[in-house]
Deep mutational scan, measured.
Amino acid sequence: MPVRRGHVAPQNTFLDTIIRKFEGQSRKFIIANARVENCAVIYCNDGFCELCGYSRAEVMQRPCTCDFLHGPRTQRRAAAQIAQALLGAEERKVEIAFYRKDGSCFLCLVDVVPVKNEDGAVIMFILNFEVVMEKDMVGSPAHDTNHRGPPTSWLAPGRAKTFRLKLPALLALTARESSVRSGGAGGAGAPGAVVVDVDLTPAAPSSESLALDEVTAMDNHVAGLGPAEERRALVGPGSPPRSAPGQLPSPRAHSLNPDASGSSCSLARTRSRESCASVRRASSADDIEAMRAGVLPPPPRHASTGAMHPLRSGLLNSTSDSDLVRYRTISKIPQITLNFVDLKGDPFLASPTSDREIIAPKIKERTHNVTEKVTQVLSLGADVLPEYKLQAPRIHRWTILHYSPFKAVWDWLILLLVIYTAVFTPYSAAFLLKETEEGPPATECGYACQPLAVVDLIVDIMFIVDILINFRTTYVNANEEVVSHPGRIAVHYFKGWFLIDMVAAIPFDLLI
Rank of each mutant, 00 (worst) to 15 (best):
P202L: 01
R4Y: 12
R20W: 06
A211V: 13
L212Y: 06
T65Q: 07
A307G: 12
P168Y: 01
R92Q: 08
S26F: 08
A282E: 12
F348T: 15
V3S: 14
T319I: 11
P114F: 01
A142D: 06
G183N: 09
E365G: 12
F106T: 01
F98V: 01
K135E: 05
P240G: 09
V113F: 13
P72I: 01
G306S: 14
S243A: 10
E91P: 11
Q61L: 12
E365M: 07
R5S: 09
G345N: 01
S207Q: 15
P251N: 04
V180W: 04
R27V: 07
I330G: 10
D321W: 13
D219S: 05
A85S: 11
V112Y: 01
K101Y: 01
A32G: 09
R148G: 09
K344D: 13
A277P: 07
F48Q: 01
D342K: 07
S283H: 08
P245H: 04
I19K: 03
R62H: 14
S354K: 04
V384N: 11
G262W: 13
I30F: 01
A268V: 14
I358L: 07
D286R: 05
V112S: 01
L87R: 14
G6E: 13
L315T: 12
S379D: 04
S206N: 09
N12F: 07
S104D: 08
F48K: 01
R73P: 01
L200P: 15
S26G: 14
A285L: 12
R77L: 13
L212K: 06
I126R: 03
L267V: 07
G149V: 14
R356H: 14
S239C: 08
G53T: 01
D355A: 14
L171N: 15
L225I: 03
P114W: 01
H302G: 14
R328P: 12
L107W: 08
V122T: 12
A253P: 14
N317V: 07
R242V: 10
D321M: 15
V279Q: 09
G246I: 15
S266D: 09
P141G: 11
T201D: 07
L380F: 07
R164K: 13
L200S: 14
V180P: 06
L165V: 06
C64R: 01
S304W: 14
P227K: 11
L225Q: 08
L127A: 01
T216I: 10
G103A: 07
V370I: 12
H302F: 11
R292G: 14
I31N: 01
R242S: 04
S379Y: 06
R326I: 04
R252G: 14
F129A: 01
M60N: 03
R159W: 12
P150Q: 14
A40W: 05
T270C: 12
L127P: 01
F22S: 13
D355K: 14
D219Y: 06
G314F: 08
G345D: 07
E91A: 10
R77W: 13
A285K: 07
V374Q: 01
L311R: 14
G47V: 01
N317G: 11
P241Y: 15
A85E: 01
V215D: 15
V377D: 03
E357S: 12
S207R: 15
T371W: 06
G149T: 08
R328W: 08
I359N: 06
D102C: 12
A83F: 06
V195P: 06
